[in-house]
């Protein structure tokens, strides 16, 4: 079999963990848009005393990288404090997946953005931050620019 994806990616793609919409999430992030082909929603349940992520789930519209990264991100974030979860990078996610095709790096970036945006949503609701930037197509394109070269990949 000659898939460009690692075993781990394919496993998470086939059987993604922590999927589905959450009722009454404490924090919720939606990144990307159908327009650019990637969209990730992340839902959080947070313990208000410890600020630990007690439950997390995602929904994904996108390619295999997108789905697998969202899946691994929820695994990585579960049980971490918001501060620690914020520090999860797309590189770590990619490593945990045994690598991602360079040209698809933006898909994992987007999943990480989804998590961060859900955390930001929680923090805003709880008066912890104010700054926000809505993610429209323009913002995604800008973010993706540095990771997307259609011919060579990264």
């Amino acid at each position: 079999m000659t898939f460009p994806y690692s075993k781990e990616v394919l496993e998470h793609f086939r059987n993604p963990h922590n999927v589905g919409k959450m009722d009454d999430p404490d924090g919720k992030g939606l990144e990307g848009s159908a327009a650019c082909g990637d969209m990730v929603a992340v839902y959080l349940k947070v313990n208000p005393d410890t600020l630990i992520i007690e439950d997390i789930s995602f929904e994904s519209y996108g390619c295999a990288s997108n789905i697998a990264t969202a899946s691994i991100i929820t695994e990585l974030a579960k049980g971490k404090t918001l501060e620690d979860a914020k520090k999860i990078t797309w590189k770590e996610a990619a490593e945990a997946l045994g690598g991602l095709p360079p040209v698809k790096a933006h898909c994992s970036v987007l999943a990480v953005e989804g998590l961060r945006s859900a955390i930001r949503d929680y923090e805003e609701k709880h008066g912890m931050v104010v700054e926000d930037e809505p993610t429209d197509e323009e913002v995604v394109r800008r973010r993706l620019k540095h990771v997307m070269n259609p011919i060579k990949g990264l």
Binding site: F13, R14, G37, G62, C63, K104, I151
Partner: peptide, 28 residues
């Protein structure tokens, strides 16, 4: 749903089809 995800699943089941999804194409 997004085409590359469908085609990858189908591929693993032994079917070859193509999609107009950006994710599938060389030019993205």
């Amino acid at each position: 749903v997004e085409g590359e995800s469908i085609t990858l699943h189908l591929d693993m089941m032994g079917f070859a089809v193509s999609t107009g999804s950006a994710c599938f194409s060389r030019s993205l």
